[in-house]
């Protein structure tokens, strides 16, 4: 019973924070609601026995991406936001298209036998480390090259060219 209540609370938190992040008029509020939604996801990861991923979620998303987003809001000018926000937005078609995507996903889930959760599940950091650094070492190294390239690219793109 406690598990159901916890899941319901976390799910409500995730969805309402996500909705506010997507619909909020104020950009900073939007970023902060996104942070709430991502932290709630980390809580859900803990209940799904993925503690390492929960920690990564908080460190990389909430610590890194949200900070980046706040800097992005700060470094761009939003004094004009009050007036013609969403002037050309066609809201209804967008919502209908997203609803259609949800319908496709939900209909794919219907009539499929879902597995019950096995009691034994080894998701310790030691197991993950062995997977990352032995079985998937090449992918891990490719990821580090990708992160380096992204870092250099971000610096080159954001640099002032007149300086």
């Amino acid at each position: 019973m406690a598990a159901q209540i916890a899941f319901g609370l976390i799910a409500a938190c995730m969805l309402s924070a996500g909705l506010l992040a997507v619909t909020s008029k104020n950009l900073v509020h939007s970023v902060l609601w996104l942070a709430v939604s991502l932290v709630a996801t980390a809580a859900l990861y803990v209940t799904l026995s993925a503690p390492f991923l929960a920690a990564m979620q908080i460190m990389l998303y909430t610590g890194g991406v949200i900070t980046l987003m706040l800097f992005g809001v700060m470094l761009t000018d939003h004094r004009h936001d009050v007036g013609v926000l969403n002037a050309s937005t066609r809201r209804l078609p967008g919502i209908l298209a997203a609803g259609a995507v949800f319908g496709v996903l939900a209909s794919a889930m219907l009539g499929v036998g879902m597995p019950a959760a096995p009691a034994q599940f080894d998701s310790s950091t030691a197991k993950l480390g062995a997977l990352l650094f032995a079985d998937h070492l090449v992918a891990f190294e490719a990821l580090s090259v990708l992160l380096l390239a992204a870092m250099l690219g971000a610096i080159v793109l954001a640099r002032r060219h007149d300086a």
């Binding site: 993925a50 991923l53 991406v65 987003m69 034994q120 998701s123 990708l146 992204a150």
Partner: peptide
């Protein structure tokens, strides 16, 4: 979790890292 398949966590970890890279380049 429901298939006792730890490799899904590795994949999710990769997606988190790629999302961070995407956010950095996108914001730049």
């Amino acid at each position: 979790r429901y298939n006792a398949w730890t490799e899904g966590h590795v994949l999710a970890f990769f997606i988190i890292a790629v999302a961070a890279a995407e956010a950095a380049v996108g914001l730049a």
